[in-house]
Structures are given as C-alpha cells and as structure tokens.
Amino acid sequence: MELLPLFLTALALGLLGGGHCIGMCGGLMGALTLAIPADQRQGWPLWRVLLGYNFGRIASYSVAGALLGSLGWLIQDLGLGQGLRVLAGLLMIAMGLYLANWWAGLTRIERLGRGLWKHIEPRARKLLPVTRLPQAILLGSLWGWLPCGLVYSTLVWASSQGDAVLSAGLMATFGLGTLPTLLATGLLANRMMALLRKRLVRITAGLMIILFGIWTIPGPHTAWVMGGQHGTHEHPATPHSGH
C-alpha cells in the first residue's frame, strides 16, 4: 500500500499541471490536429490519431523515467539519495510557485532541454502530415521530449525513488494525468483554459504542488505526514521503500 500515495501524487501532478500543459503544449496539440488530413478530423479517425500522439508522448515519459530512475538508483547507492530528494522537492516547489504566478524561475530550467529539442524538432516535422496511427505514435514519442519544467520536476521526483521500473510507472501515471487537458478540443478547450486561468484555481493547484514538494524533501515532517513511517531511506531495496 506504500506505493499508492506515490501513484496518486504522480496522477495529481499531471492533473494539477493542466494550466502549464495548455500553455506549453496547447498550441502544439492544435498544430498536430491541423496536420491531420481534413477528411480525418472528425469522429473516430481524429480520436485515433490524438490518442496515438498521447500514447507516444506518455511512452517517452516512461522511457525518460526508466533512464533517470536507473541514475537515481546509482545516486542512492553512492549515499546521495537525500540530496536527490531535496532537489526533487525544490523543483516541485518551484513548479507550484510558477503555477500560482508567484515566481517564474522554473522556465530557466526548461532552457536545459532546448539543445536536445533543436535536434528532435526537424525529425518530427518530417512526419507531417499525419495519415497513419504508427506515424502519430512516433510523432507523439518525439513530442514527449519537448522542454517542459513540469515534466522535468516530476521526472527528478520520480527518479528520486531509486528504482527504474517504479520511476517509469510514475511518469506514465503522470502522463495519464495530463490527458484530460491535452485531449480537450474546440469549445471544451476554451472552457478548460478559462477555468485553469482563474486565479483561485491556479493558486490552489500551486499550493498543492508546493505541499507535494515539501513532503518530498527528507525530514521529520515526512515521517509525520506518513503517520510515523520513515521517508528518508538511503538505499531502498525494493520499490516499496520509496516513501
């Protein structure tokens, strides 16, 4: 049962980050929709391609989670696990501050991924226009590497669990949490954008992510939140010892 809070946290991060998702990927999602031939932009043909995009995107999150989860295991094996947890918590707090419109410093972290994205974007453009499902999945898998502070902060948090498989699963769950926002189209997208732009909604989402960040940072408060369980293990032997 110790895994349940982790997966619920990952899902909540995806859901609460909806405002950032629309800002970062809403325009891209619209462009990808327009890249579908006009006669396929309705009904099941449209949804099949949209789901293909997002399947590929979430798959790339999982791959990144597995890669960084392996690195997180190595870092914990070197006795630096608490440092990684502190970094993950601070990044999550920065994301909460960004969502609440209190501090935009997280956008500087997104610049770190722009070098990689410059090499990926030309390959993604070659897949347009999208006419087949495998094409949509491949394009989505490239889209998943778009520089994004929300993804980066969640990725570091997931990798701090020190287990490649668990990290991959957490990133997949996070990706599922972003689906409602990124699948919304037309009038529904406009309504969702209006909702996510409301100050109270943004502040509430930001505060909740800040609390997740504080919970992630090792310390006495973590044991208190978890009802007396210790959350600062240096060498988790199994995925169950992440928190």
Rank of each mutant, 00 (worst) to 15 (best):
I120N: 02
Y61P: 09
P122D: 06
P220K: 11
G79I: 09
R108T: 00
G206S: 05
I210V: 14
C148N: 05
G96Y: 08
H20V: 11
M193H: 15
H240W: 14
A104P: 01
L106H: 04
G105F: 00
G72M: 05
P239I: 07
P236V: 10
I209S: 04
P180V: 04
V201C: 05
L207D: 02
L84S: 10
F212V: 11
S160R: 09
Q82R: 07
W102L: 14
G72P: 10
L155F: 08
M1H: 15
G52A: 02
S62M: 15
F174G: 07
I93A: 06
G17Y: 09
L90C: 14
L133K: 00
R197A: 08
H233Q: 12
V151I: 11
G23H: 12
F212M: 12
L138T: 09
L11T: 01
L150A: 14
A168Y: 11
L200T: 14
G242I: 03
A136L: 03
S159A: 14
L170K: 06
G79K: 06
G144D: 11
G175Y: 09
T131E: 04
P147M: 06
G140D: 09
W47K: 03
A59Y: 12
L32T: 00
T238V: 10
R111K: 13
I209C: 07
T181W: 15
M171Y: 05
T173W: 13
Q135K: 06
G56Y: 14
E110F: 04
H240V: 00
C148T: 01
C25T: 00
G56T: 09
T131S: 06
T181L: 14
L15E: 10
L6P: 02
H233M: 12
G140T: 06
V86C: 08
T33E: 03
H240T: 05
T33I: 01
I137V: 15
A124P: 02
P180I: 06
I36P: 00
V225M: 07
